[in-house]
Design a protein around this nucleic acid. Structure first.
Ligand SMILES: [Zn+2]
Ligand SMILES: [Zn+2]
Ligand SMILES: [Zn+2]
Ligand SMILES: [Zn+2]
Lengths: 120, 120
DNA sequence: TATAGTTCAGCATGTTCA
DNA sequence: TGAACATGCTGAACTATA
């Protein structure tokens, strides 16, 4: 269980608590979602301060341009080979997820762990 | 000399450290599991780069299609044969089935210049 | 002992909703 | 925007079997 604990897992972009590796970088959920949304749209973001904004947990929302830049600096990138080429299966879901199908799927992995979220 | 270490056994597919022969080829645990899972569920994998992806330890996850192709090129195959009580050396040396299919695949794969570089 | 099969925590990425 | 959830894939460790 690595009681060492000395190793804090912080987001490489804003320093918030990281939940794991996302897009090849250790980041928090916020920067993960931000990157996914932003990198595709790439709406010519421009920083009003010549890209000198600090990106931390508090101010990360203030300047998307600098946040995105820091994401890229941290090594984040979309895996072009493995994305958008496989989503077909779980689409076209009209109502609430049918517990039956989902349960069936998840049952395969629910043998021992109740939730396979990142422990912490 | 339990671990002379001088002789490194590398995976024929990705070059990672091999753990032994798996499905008739010297491979690592990763490619072993990948092949077992994929060869049966061959869900029409397609490479977004015309099958010219390099398959090494770092990038082997990027393109399943090319990874599987390299597995087959390395001679990997499920031994779905009958009793499987023993691996007969004279394994259907008369059947053109494997030879032709194999050659065909290899031909398709090794056609263009392998100079194509994938991201990263 | 060696290889094939099984398990499962973790990774990658997308979706939902407050 | 981001926490929570959904799913498929990966591979180290383990088990089964010859
Ligand atoms: Zn962050
Ligand atoms: Zn800025
Ligand atoms: Zn390998
Ligand atoms: Zn490929």
């Amino acid at each position: 269980m690595a009681s060492g604990e000395g190793e804090r897992r912080n987001c490489a972009v804003c320093g918030d608590r990281a939940t794991g590796y996302h897009f090849h970088a250790l980041t928090c959920e916020g920067c993960k979602g931000f990157f996914r949304r932003t990198v595709t749209r790439s709406t010519g973001l421009t920083c009003p301060f010549a890209g000198r904004c600090e990106v931390n947990k508090i101010q990360r929302r203030h300047c998307p341009a600098c946040r995105l830049q820091k994401c890229l600096d941290a090594g984040m990138k979309k895996d072009t080979s493995r994305s958008s080429v496989r989503p077909p299966p779980a689409f076209a879901r009209l109502g609430p997820r049918t517990a039956s199908a989902d349960a069936l799927r998840r049952d395969q992995h629910l043998h021992g762990a109740a939730n396979h979220q990142v422990h912490q």
